[in-house]
Design a protein around this nucleic acid. Structure first.
Lengths: 142, 142
DNA sequence: TGAATATCGTTGTATGCGACAACTACTAGG
DNA sequence: CCTAGTAGTTGTCGCATACAACGATATTCA
């Protein structure tokens, strides 16, 4: 196996390892906002209001999954839903005040937890890793 | 938010994105060997024979989860289990011939799929990303 | 040595995420 | 209008996981 292949093995293994732990951590960090729910709320926040279909497309999830997630988010008062006046089939979803607050708090905790494991890294390395990951996922055409 | 914080945000988001897709991909790539099962088989292979508790520790999974996973793996003939002669509470698990064959095949496919998304990367970058991830997960003490 | 304690693995039960398919409500194009 | 197509909901299923209770075995120490 070439060095390059060995590196790719490591990447796969380590990414998988992360994947296995991410949900767990999110649950510990902010039990009231699951990893999925958090991602969706985050996306709504970053992209302004959007439709359920947008979320499904962006996260590559079935619309039924998204539907249930946003139903829960709404039940907990994290988001606001309204029918799109331009197309009554669609709805516009966006974070509520409460949702935004929770998101902010969760992001703060998340960042703190990240800060912990990046203490030994200098800014260049952090930026470089971010760039790599972005590039890696961008190649994720499916 | 500082650049460093922004980078950590990206890292979190991209890693999460990877997490969300990994299982799906593994299922597409080799339907007969789920992501979890594959990781476990891989670990057994890389570390020689081991106990269920080792797997639980390494993957940060509950022992019940591991127990069910290896029960399935055994039912499908991928692994062999025997009671540890030194401690009758434990069992020693290791890949069977069939398991090793499947693992090899799965690894080949996996590598091919990886190769695809790393085509534009030079060897240095691949190695650097691998190093970053290893370092990241190593800090993952929990 | 024998009782208390700890460890390894299994099993019962519950939860959460996700998929697929069937359905309703609405829209758009002949 | 009627026929397609699209957005979202709901029913049902499977999988991975956690936690708790348990049986069997090991270990420790009074």
């Amino acid at each position: 196996m070439s060095d390059r292949e060995a590196s790719m093995d490591v990447i796969q293994r380590e990414l998988t390892s992360f994947a296995r732990r991410a949900r767990q951590k999110a649950a510990q960090l902010h039990p009231e906002l699951s990893l999925v729910a958090h991602s969706m709320l985050d996306h709504m926040d970053k992209n302004g209001s959007c439709h359920a279909a947008d979320l499904a497309g962006h996260f590559m999830l079935d619309k039924s999954t998204v539907s249930r997630q946003i139903t829960m988010l709404e039940a907990e008062g994290m988001i606001v839903r309204e029918t799109d006046p331009d197309d009554h089939r669609r709805q516009i979803v966006k974070p509520s005040e409460k949702g935004l607050d929770l998101l902010k708090g969760a992001n703060r905790q998340r960042r703190a937890s990240f800060e912990e494991r990046f203490t030994d890294w200098d800014d260049t390395d952090v930026a470089q890793l971010a760039a790599y990951l972005r590039s890696y996922n961008a190649a994720d055409v499916d």
